[in-house]
Design a protein around this nucleic acid. Structure first.
Lengths: 246, 246
DNA sequence: GACCGAGTGGGTCGGGCGTCCCAGTCGCGC
DNA sequence: GCGCGACTGGGACGCCCGACCCACTCGGTC
């Protein structure tokens, strides 16, 4: 409540708004609920933002910009097969979703809000463009890690991957069935791997010195760093992975 | 405005609510907006329903129950290849989505509402169970039509299919990119077909004259029949279908 | 044809909403 | 150390919301 530069206040309000949206949806993110979450007074809201709409717009922007990873391919055990690598990445992603489902719900909520709001039609499109770019980077990484080459343009495969993750997350949010989600993840990995040509025959795998654990974080996407979901992958996820392949 | 039995009034209000939600989201479906859409007076609302919440709950129920088809496989020329059959079905489905995107938006909106509302957690799960059941029926139909057999339990494949369609629709709603959607549809068809064992060896490939289908209607899912999206499949969709294969 | 219950119309209530206002207060630059 | 501008607190306004109430009117039944 004491003095605080506007910029920081804005950031805190954005973070608070995200938290409220995760809990109660965009409609529940009233000015009062947001300032309450942030521990501020109502007047501070309209000192930091001209209107609720402006806050929402900025929130979508920030959230999209800070989206970090779609799937975080585990910078490969050498010789790992492509499908296994993708599956492991997806399982890591899934563990992040399980760790904080509300975050994902909030993302969907915001996307839908952007789609419905006249001025923000382009924002939803940009959001998906960003997802695809991230997915594409992951795919590229996976292919170089295994030496495979993709049979179709990576940007197309990225769209396929995004569709799969979206569908998996949405279904899981609705029914919470971990087993089914993991089965679909295995399917997704197989399907994507099938879109690659195998590595050009090389009897022995080259020295793959891509140090393991290049990057410990999974999904980050915090609006301000305050409540990031960072951290190790749930080992149970990886354990199930090998068993759930068909 | 004249006299009208309660049951009909209820139905009209449900249909009106769905229309409003498609346009303005669940939050925009106020009692006043709904009765306005239905051409009634406000008092009639609370004569037909105890509360707004009750209407919303019944709406979700009705919508889930009336969901008709996920994908409408075009009951097959014998010997048609499985991937082509699935792709055609998905393209038909996609054309229905394109014809009435607001309907699909409303469906997502309602799902999210159900997930967020304490008493209705199970409803969202039921909704997805229904989707999967419909998808499973489609897959079964596709396999019998082609003589293939699925390599995994159909209920699992159904979940995969639902995830794919959800992902495709969601991305398309966000960016409206028909070409990309069709490319992902082709991918989805390939991926699902790869989960089947080919038909027990039958020498000749039948001519792939899948063309016109057994069943002209696609998605129906009306809340009461009054504003159903029924009717022939957009012929442009089918025409494009053959061209969009990768 | 009158009656009586099902259905209707209009007005109202309390509350939460976004937004605004302005007197106060704090902290940074001189 | 002081002044002024950046920031805060509390209250208020007008609006729309869900819900409710009750006097009325219509239409099927006898």
């Amino acid at each position: 409540m004491p003095h605080m530069p506007v910029t920081e206040r804005r950031e805190r309000l954005l973070a608070a708004a995200f938290a409220v949206i995760a809990r109660a949806g965009v409609a529940g993110a009233t000015t009062r609920a947001v300032v309450d979450e942030a521990g501020m007074k109502l007047a501070s809201f309209h000192y930091a933002f001209r209107s609720r709409e402006e806050l929402l717009a900025q929130l979508v922007d920030v959230v999209v910009e800070n989206q970090e990873v779609v799937l975080d391919v585990p910078a490969a055990a050498p010789g790992a097969d492509l499908a296994g690598l993708i599956e492991l990445g997806l399982l890591r992603f899934f563990d992040q979703v399980r760790a904080d489902p509300q975050r994902e719900r909030a993302m969907f909520e915001l996307t839908q809000y952007a789609m419905r709001t006249p001025g923000m039609a382009g924002v939803a499109a940009r959001q998906y463009a960003r997802y695809r770019a991230l997915a594409e980077a992951s795919l590229r990484e996976a292919s170089t890690a295994t030496g495979c080459t993709w049979a179709r343009p990576e940007e197309q495969l990225a769209a396929d991957l995004v569709a799969l993750t979206d569908g998996i997350v949405l279904a899981w949010l609705a029914d919470g069935d971990d087993v089914r989600a993991r089965a679909t993840i295995a399917f997704a990995a197989r399907a994507l791997a099938a879109e690659a040509h195998p590595a050009p025959a090389r009897p022995t795998e080259g020295p793959r010195s891509v140090t393991s654990g290049r990057y410990p974080a999974g999904i980050v996407t915090t609006t301000d760093g305050s409540r990031a979901v960072v951290g190790g992958v749930d080992p149970r996820g990886a354990a199930d992975a090998s068993g759930s392949r068909a």
